[in-house]
């Protein structure tokens, strides 16, 4: 049974999502109202998947920061972001910090269940919204004169654009004349590259500012 932890500061939402998941045969091992609480509880319950809100009314570490700390310490735990709309910069930060994907809070129960299952299996949950965000981030980096930021191949760009406009992996595979699995690989690669880049950047920043030894 997949062990899930729900982190959200709104009690009605938290309880509701937990109940939906239990009804669909997930084990909800814990709930937490903010990032600080989540970081305290995670080691005790070792969930497979953490459903992460991005903003907490009580302050403390944000959803993105909590995600980064969880993944740094427990690399086997997958984090799936559940976000409200209009938090795109924060969603991107969380995904760069290692989250496996994000769902809008307006997603249906079926979408949520599928997403949690896929996350537990280690796949990134690729919604159109996430593809749009990644595409935007790569475009932004491409305009940046610094040359060491990762680039998308033409094929990866094409695949991401199609995901961002709602095409399924099957439709993309058909349109591009490649296998379903290759499409998946392209998509996952775009996310991995960005997360890796983010990690390298953080390390470089830390060394430059004397936060860690070389």
């Amino acid at each position: 049974m997949i062990r899930v932890m729900v982190v959200d500061d709104h009690p009605i939402w938290r309880a509701g999502v937990a109940r939906d998941l239990v009804e669909q045969d997930f084990e909800v091992v814990a709930t937490a109202a903010d990032g600080a609480a989540a970081l305290r509880i995670v080691p005790a319950v070792t969930p497979d998947v953490v459903l992460m809100d991005l903003h907490f009314a009580s302050g403390g570490p944000s959803g993105a920061e909590t995600t980064r700390r969880i993944i740094d310490t427990w690399p086997d735990i997958r984090v799936l972001v559940l976000s409200a709309s209009g938090e795109h910069a924060d969603v991107l930060a969380a995904v760069q910090a290692g989250a496996s994907g994000y769902l809008m809070k307006s997603a249906s129960v079926e979408e949520l269940v599928t997403a949690v299952r896929r996350t537990a299996e280690g796949d990134a949950v690729f919604t159109a919204g996430l593809a749009g965000l990644l595409l935007g981030e790569y475009r932004r980096m491409a305009l940046d004169p610094r040359t060491d930021s990762p680039r998308l191949t033409d094929r990866e760009t094409e695949v991401l654009r199609q995901v961002a406009t709602g095409c399924t992996a099957r439709q993309i595979a058909e349109a591009l004349g490649i296998s379903h699995r290759t499409v998946e690989n392209h998509v996952q690669a775009t996310l991995r590259k960005l997360q890796l880049h983010n990690r390298v950047e953080l390390t470089r920043y830390a060394i430059e500012h004397g936060l860690i030894d070389q």
Partner: peptide, 13 residues
């Protein structure tokens, strides 16, 4: 324009 039948994909910036 987002709604139950409309999904909007945008950059973070």
């Amino acid at each position: 324009l987002a709604g139950p039948r409309v999904e909007v994909s945008v950059p973070a910036t």
